[in-house]
């Protein structure tokens, strides 16, 4: 019974935090959403291109490239964080830009992290389009571009799935953002590079389990809300 009370308290404080328009909480949510959003935009663009090239062109090393993509789907985030950290650190090759411990560094590491996942899901979607539909398009007089466009159209749902999966991975990820972002909060209690996930780590370490849990609920609520919106979009206009 005690544990139930614990969850009840966490839910209530999550609700209080959200309703109370707590500036600290909203700045954390802001950083989380902004960083994940830009990582998704960059990765989505790049992945779309990569999946397109791997799926529609035959070139040496193509099979190895797709093996690499599928392997990268399970990339451990700490390794990505470490890699980006070394890249951006003072003595690293990109150290001159002074990007370490900024939101930009977090966007970079998240982009690297989710790109194989987004590319992989898009790729498997494109590759699973039925050969007979391609034949039908060809036979109906489609030229190369029209055929490609038709395949992309047939695979459209996997593109949406890829973006949802990528966003989910980005916003729920903690290992790399804590390494390259530094989990910084300004002295006026406004987050600079602290995200919902890194904030949960901090609260847990301090022993504030109920606020940690509350932040977790906020995170889940955001992911849920985004998925509901996307699913509804898919279900109406797109699902034609």
């Amino acid at each position: 019974m005690e544990s139930l009370g614990f969850f009840f308290n966490a839910t209530r404080s999550a609700f209080d935090l959200l309703i109370g328009l707590d500036p600290y909480l909203y700045s954390i949510i802001g950083v989380s959403l902004t960083v994940s959003f830009w990582a998704l935009v960059i990765s989505g663009t790049f992945s779309g291109l990569a999946a397109f090239i791997i799926s529609f062109f035959r070139f040496p090393g193509r099979n190895w490239l797709s093996v690499l993509v599928y392997t990268g789907m399970g990339l451990p985030s700490v390794i990505v964080g470490l890699f980006v950290l070394l890249l951006l650190s003072k003595n690293g090759p990109l150290g001159g830009f002074g990007l370490l411990w900024t939101p930009t560094a977090m966007v970079i590491s998240q982009t690297v992290l989710i790109t194989p996942l987004v590319t992989g899901v898009m790729l498997s979607g494109l590759d699973s389009v039925d050969e007979s539909v391609v034949d039908a398009a060809t036979s109906l007089g489609a030229n190369w571009w029209q055929r490609i466009w038709t395949v992309i159209y047939e695979a459209r749902f996997s593109f949406i799935t890829a973006l949802i999966a990528g966003f989910g991975r980005a916003i729920s990820e903690v290992g790399s953002v804590i390494l390259v972002g530094g989990n910084i909060v300004w002295s006026n209690e406004v987050s600079y590079t602290r995200t919902l996930t890194t904030a949960i780590v901090v609260e847990t370490r301090k022993g504030n389990f109920d606020s940690a849990l509350a932040l977790g609920l906020v995170l889940l609520t955001i992911v849920l809300a985004i998925n509901i919106v996307v699913t509804r979009l898919r279900g109406s206009g797109f699902h034609y």
């Binding site: 007979s132 539909v133 039908a136 036979s139 159209y153 047939e154």
Partner: peptide, 9 residues
């Protein structure tokens, strides 16, 4: 075609 192979629209 033997199978209609329609586009999903």
């Amino acid at each position: 075609f033997q199978e209609p192979a329609l586009i999903d629209c």
